[in-house]
Nucleic acid binder design. Structure first.
Length: 412
RNA sequence: GGAGAGAUGGCAGAGCGGUUAAUUGCGACGGUCUUGAAAACCGUUGAAGAAUAUUAAUUCUUCCGGGGGUUCGAAUCCCUCUCUCUCCGCCA
């Protein structure tokens, strides 16, 4: 979340920011300013009372019982004021936490920013291939790849079972992604899938996305919707040396999403699942170089997709479409030749200091402490990549699905 | 699940009702010495809010895991929550 002191000093900037994001609750900033003025007055009264009490207690022996009664009255007053103070603080917090991150400068350069901007495209020539592509759902009927019928008996819709060829490809993709990321310095972690509410607050998905997250009431735990949450939370309350940055980490986890409200075509096959596997990469860096790191991550994921030799594109998401925590987001989409549509396989964001404010992730440089910047991206979502690969690679030999060359060492 | 111990600054670790924002050690930063470095020595080293005032500061308040209570006064006593550790039980 944004620091309150920042909000107070940058009122206009934030209002402009909210407008750009099409944020609905426009009086939010005014509310916060009003509440803050109230709180200031209360704090001043409390300070004065504390001063009197402190003086009295320091000179206790001299004053003794003379002013004693006054002190007791004044203490009662202080208690009342304290309650008020905390009440307003909570109110401010509740409003503060829903203010999204400041969007990147790039969104102020282009006037048209309600549309997706394609910034890179690769493999377009594949569109020329003349072949009767069938989608991965049909393919799965022909080959042993995955099964949603059996899984729906077990868990309901939105779950999947991999076996045979599908399982082999799945593991190949997974191991290749981990290998590729690791080669580029991302340290791997195996993470818990059940997390506390506090961790979700830390990375900023709560309270906005609370309807998308599975909640295990009995134990007050939540299923992770993305590895980003436990992965970033590893570093809560950390103080890094400037020279140790950037921190690069990755993890494969299953991700659990309720997907409340989605229906129809999108739900079919491997496209939208309640549980899916994804390799996530994150970086933690200083407060200046985060956009440079973002570019490096962008190139990293680009290289990975290129090596799979699929038709993909990179999109700069419009600022009214990026998540609360993000200042700038790029989406990576692969073209599915069977479904004849684009599907998102990665989303890469710079969260600047929005998360590190919550999680108290800082670095120290020349005895001064600063908040780190955090970045995250998928590298990559496995079911969707698997689906798009089998759809494209079915054309290379009749009645067979070919495996991309790069995956062969991981396939066997 | 049962019993016990604990959470203090960047880290380690004292303090366990009254100049304690907190002894000390290490680290970090600055300086002296040196051709340079090390060693040694000297100095600096938490955060937030407010007032005065203005670029240099001064003053006040709050903060020793979170929340609440006792007291003229709490890091220190009590309650509660969260987390960590040790022992016992259960278990892949």
């Amino acid at each position: 979340m944004l620091k309150l002191s920042f909000i107070l000093k940058n009122k206009n900037k934030i209002i402009e920011n909210l407008q750009k994001r099409d944020f609905k609750y426009k009086l939010l900033i005014n509310d916060i300013l009003l509440l803050n003025n109230k709180i200031k007055k209360i704090k001043k009264k409390i300070d004065n009372i504390s001063k009197i009490i402190n003086k009295f207690s320091k000179n206790y022996i001299f004053f003794k019982k003379k002013i004693y009664k006054d002190i007791i009255n004044i203490k009662k007053k202080k208690k009342k004021l304290n309650k008020k103070y905390k009440y307003y603080k909570k109110k401010i917090f509740k409003k503060n936490i829903i203010i999204p991150n400041i969007i990147d400068k790039i969104y102020f350069k282009n006037k048209k920013n309600n549309n997706k901007t394609i910034i890179y495209e690769y493999g377009k020539e594949k569109l020329k291939i003349k072949y009767n592509f069938i989608d991965h759902i049909e393919l799965s009927k022909k080959f042993e790849i995955f099964n949603t019928k059996i899984s729906s008996n077990i868990s309901g819709t939105g779950f999947v079972i991999y076996s045979g060829l599908g399982l082999k490809l799945y593991k190949a993709l997974l191991n290749y992604f981990l290998y590729f990321n690791n080669k580029n310095g991302y340290k791997e972690y195996i993470l818990p899938y059940l997390i506390k509410k506090q961790s979700i607050y830390g990375t900023g998905q709560y309270p906005k996305n609370k309807n998308q997250i599975y909640n295990i009431n009995k134990d007050k735990l939540y299923l992770i919707p993305t590895a980003e949450i436990p992965l970033i939370n590893i570093y809560q309350n950390k103080l890094f040396n400037y020279n140790d940055l950037p921190i690069k980490a990755q993890s494969y986890t299953e991700c659990f999403r309720r997907e409340a409200g989605s229906y129809g075509k999108n739900v079919k096959g491997l496209n939208r699942l309640h549980q899916f596997g994804k390799v996530e990469i994150i970086e933690i860096c200083d407060n200046i170089s985060s956009n440079l790191r973002l570019k490096k991550m962008l190139n990293h994921i680009k290289k990975l997709l290129k090596s799979l030799d699929v038709y993909f594109r990179i999109i700069l998401l419009p600022c009214n479409d990026i998540s609360n925590t993000s200042s700038i987001t790029y989406d990576f989409e692969i073209y599915c030749f069977g479904l004849k549509r684009w599907i998102e396989v990665s989303s890469l964001s710079n969260c600047t200091d929005y998360q590190s404010n919550n999680l108290n992730i800082r670095f120290i440089k020349k005895n001064k402490k600063y908040f780190c910047h955090t970045l995250n991206g998928s590298s990559l979502s496995i079911p969707r990549v698997l689906a798009s690969i089998i759809e494209l690679y079915q054309c290379k030999k009749k009645n067979r699905i070919v495996i991309p060359n790069i995956l062969l060492p991981f396939y066997n």
